[in-house]
């Protein structure tokens, strides 16, 4: 005859569903911003990690200049190996990117392609700003025609993504606050719906903590449902992002920052649910019809 904690949620099934959806959206919106920033950052870092700087040699470079340059670059601490790419290798690379037919249509031949050095960094280029600047400096030399390194724009994009991540974090805090308010308000409503039962139980000597248990259990379960729903949605978005980026960049991104963002709602939901359940069930917030108006009015 004492109804279990989730009975009230079943009685108000539609409201419960609406609250779970609203709470999931509260977690999802900032989650999407933070997640997009994290996923874009992961993708950008992944692209930078696989990026090997290229030094294109000018047509007038003598073999002695070329050899001197190769030896010099091999001695740089950030460079693991220096690979020489002849004209034929460059055409092959081009064919891999554009397709054999397209290269043939363009009429590109090995003799047209300049020789170049491909620098394989000892660790991903993203962590070697000095290598980027050193390679950029080579452009001033006569033997060098041009260089290919991530320029300042890439670094700027990364910093924008960091800012987006920060904004996502702030929105996340706001979203958690909205989530907590939505869950708390609904828990208060359910508590009011069970006020008669709680009053009767208290009147005959039930402990306050046994009444609190119902609100806390509801808070955890609603938090779990909302958080689970938000996490599933983010996971689906993450899988789509990963497959799209793999197709665009031609390699799989590790997404080390994006995965934790996707599972955060599942972690935060139940924790905030417990706190909300605990907060709404304190005796001060529990309405009661046991006490006459006069005693309530004077807070005794």
């Amino acid at each position: 005859m004492i109804q279990p904690a989730m009975h009230a949620c079943r009685v108000y099934a539609w409201q419960t569903l609406a609250v779970v959806l609203a709470a999931a959206v509260a977690l999802l919106l900032p989650g999407f911003v933070a997640f997009s920033a994290a996923a874009a950052r992961d993708t950008a870092e992944g692209w930078l990690s696989s990026f090997n700087p290229v030094v294109y040699l000018s047509a007038g470079a003598t073999p002695a200049d070329i050899e001197a340059l190769r030896v010099e670059m091999s001695e740089w601490s950030a460079v693991e190996t220096v690979r020489v790419r002849k004209g034929a290798d460059a055409v092959k690379d081009l064919e891999t990117r554009l397709g054999v037919e397209r290269v043939r249509e363009l009429g590109v031949t090995a003799s047209m392609m300049p020789s170049s050095f491909v620098l394989v960094p000892s660790s991903p280029v993203a962590g070697h700003i000095e290598l980027v600047s050193e390679v950029s400096g080579l452009e001033a030399r006569e033997s060098v025609d041009s260089v290919s390194v991530p320029d300042a724009t890439a670094v700027r994009i990364l910093s924008i993504l960091s800012l987006l991540g920060f904004i996502g974090g702030l929105l996340g805090v706001l979203g958690l606050a909205v989530f907590a308010v939505v869950i708390s308000e609904y828990l208060i409503r359910l508590q009011r719906a069970e006020q008669a039962q709680n009053d009767v139980l208290l009147m005959f000597g039930a402990q306050g903590r046994s009444l609190r248990k119902a609100s806390i259990v509801r808070g955890v379960i609603l938090g779990l449902w909302s958080g689970g729903l938000a996490t599933i949605t983010l996971m689906v978005a993450l899988a789509i992002w990963q497959s799209v980026m793999s197709a665009v960049l031609g390699g799989s991104a590790s997404l080390v920052h994006a995965w934790p963002v996707a599972v955060m709602p599942l972690a935060f939901g139940p924790v905030i649910g417990v706190l909300a359940g605990f907060w709404v069930s304190t005796p001060e917030r529990r309405s009661t019809d046991l006490v006459p108006r006069l005693l309530t009015a004077y807070g005794v």
Binding site: M1, I2, A196, V200
Partner: peptide, 20 residues
């Protein structure tokens, strides 16, 4: 009296025993 409206008279009377 504060009674549990959606439950029967017998269920209401049993509550003190359950709590005790």
């Amino acid at each position: 009296p504060i009674l549990l409206d959606d439950r029967t008279v017998l269920e209401n009377l049993v509550v003190p025993f359950v709590v005790r």
